[in-house]
Amino acid sequence: NLFVALYDFVASGDNTLSITKGEKLRVLGYNHNGEWCEAQTKNGQGWVPSNYITPVN
């Protein structure tokens, strides 16, 4: 599942992941309501807002 970041997101805690607009990432899963997804980039792994990313076509 390859996705791309639509916006910059700055991590606010130990379990969140900073991403940069245009960065590619893999989604590993979603939380119970789908608002957050666990993602992996070359810089690490953590939670990002699911509305900040979109699938790569």
Rank of each mutant, 00 (worst) to 15 (best):
K24M: 13
L2N: 15
N15D: 12
A11M: 08
G46L: 05
L2S: 07
R26M: 14
V27L: 10
G34E: 15
N31Y: 11
D14I: 06
W36P: 00
D8N: 10
N57V: 13
A11R: 09
G44H: 01
Y52V: 12
G13E: 12
N51D: 08
A11K: 11
V27W: 05
Y7S: 14
G29S: 10
L2T: 10
G13D: 14
I53K: 02
T54D: 03
V56Y: 13
K24I: 06
E38K: 14
N43K: 14
T41L: 03
N51L: 07
N31P: 05
I53Q: 00
S12L: 09
Q45F: 11
K42H: 05
C37Y: 11
K21I: 00
R26I: 08
S12G: 11
G44C: 11
D14E: 07
V56S: 11
V48H: 00
K24L: 02
P49G: 00
G44W: 11
L28I: 08
W47A: 06
N33Q: 10
T20A: 10
A5P: 15
N51H: 09
Y7E: 15
T41V: 07
K21L: 14
S18F: 13
R26T: 15
L25T: 04
E38N: 08
Y52I: 06
L28N: 10
V48C: 10
V4N: 04
V10I: 12
W36F: 13
R26N: 15
V10C: 08
F3P: 00
K21V: 06
E23C: 06
H32T: 13
S18G: 10
L17S: 01
W47V: 06
K42M: 08
L2Y: 05
A11E: 08
V10E: 12
Y7G: 12
L28M: 15
S18C: 13
N43F: 02
V56R: 08
L25A: 04
I19Y: 00
N33R: 07
D8A: 10
V4H: 07
V10N: 14
I19H: 00
T54L: 07
Q45D: 07
Y52M: 14
P55M: 13
P49T: 00
K24Q: 02
P55H: 09
T20H: 05
I53E: 00
F3V: 07
Q40Y: 15
G13C: 09
Q40T: 12
K24H: 07
V56P: 15
P55S: 07
A39T: 12
G46R: 03
P49W: 02
Y30N: 07
N31S: 13
T41R: 05
D14N: 12
N15G: 14
G13R: 11
Y7F: 14
F9N: 03
H32W: 10
V10W: 08
T20Y: 09
L28F: 03
Y52L: 13
W36Y: 15
Y52W: 07
L6Y: 02
S50R: 14
E23G: 02
L17P: 03
N31R: 13
Q45W: 04
Y30C: 06
D14Y: 02
F3N: 05
P49K: 10
N43G: 14
W47F: 15
G34V: 06
V27N: 04
K21G: 04
D8T: 11
E38P: 01
A5H: 00
L2M: 14
N51T: 11
N57I: 03
S12E: 14
G22T: 00
E35G: 09
H32K: 15
K24V: 06
Y52A: 15
Y52H: 07
K42A: 11
G46Y: 05
G29Y: 05
N15A: 14
H32F: 08
R26S: 13
D14G: 08
G34S: 11
T54K: 14
K24W: 04
G44M: 05
K42G: 14
V4M: 07
Y7K: 15
T41I: 04
I19V: 07
Q45A: 15
T20N: 10
N57R: 08
F3L: 01
Y30P: 09
N1T: 02
L2A: 02
D14Q: 11
A5T: 03
N57G: 04
K21T: 05
K42E: 15
N57S: 12
Y30K: 07
G44N: 08
N31E: 12
H32S: 11
I19C: 08
E35F: 04
Y7R: 15
F9R: 07
V10S: 10
L25D: 01
S12Q: 03
L2E: 06
Y7H: 12
V48Y: 00
G29I: 04
A11G: 08
N31G: 14
F3S: 05
G22E: 02
T54W: 15
K24D: 06
G29Q: 12
T41W: 05
W36N: 04
N57D: 10
P55R: 11
I19K: 02
Y30H: 04
N15S: 12
H32P: 14
L2V: 03
T54I: 09
P55K: 10
G46M: 06
S12H: 03
T20F: 04
R26F: 03
P55C: 10
K42R: 13
Q45C: 10
G34F: 07
L28W: 05
P55Y: 15
N43S: 14
V27S: 06
V10D: 03
P49V: 00
H32D: 14
W47Y: 13
V48L: 12
G44V: 03
E35Y: 02
A5G: 05
V4T: 06
Q45E: 06
N57K: 15
S18E: 05
G46A: 10
N15F: 06
D8P: 09
I53L: 14
L25P: 01
V56T: 13
N31W: 05
G29H: 07
G13S: 12
T16H: 13
N57Y: 09
V56Q: 03
A5S: 13
N31M: 02
Y7A: 11
K24S: 10
E23P: 00
V10M: 14
Q40V: 13
Y30L: 08
I53C: 13
T41E: 00
V48D: 02
P49R: 11
E38D: 14
A39M: 03
V48P: 00
W47D: 02
T54V: 14
T16C: 01
D8Y: 04
N1Y: 15
N1R: 08
S50V: 13
N15I: 15
N15Q: 13
W36A: 07
P49E: 02
C37R: 03
I19G: 02
R26D: 14
Y7D: 09
F3G: 04
V27G: 04
S18N: 01
Y30E: 15
N33K: 15
T20L: 13
A11I: 02
I19T: 04
E35W: 03
Y52C: 13
I53N: 02
E38I: 05
F9K: 06
N33T: 15
A5Y: 01
S50F: 09
D8E: 07
G29R: 09
W47N: 08
K42S: 09
G29V: 06
W47S: 04
T41N: 05
R26P: 00
V10T: 11
Y30Q: 13
E35S: 10
L6Q: 13
Y7C: 11
N51W: 06
N31L: 08
E35Q: 11
N31H: 11
W47T: 02
L6F: 04
A11Q: 08
T41D: 01
Y52G: 11
E23W: 01
T54Q: 15
V48W: 00
L25R: 01
H32C: 15
W47H: 03
E35H: 02
I19R: 00
N33W: 04
G22D: 15
T41A: 05
K42V: 11
V56N: 13
S50C: 15
S18V: 06
L28V: 10
V10G: 09
G13T: 12
N31D: 14
D14V: 10
F3A: 05
G13L: 09
E35T: 09
E38L: 06
A5D: 01
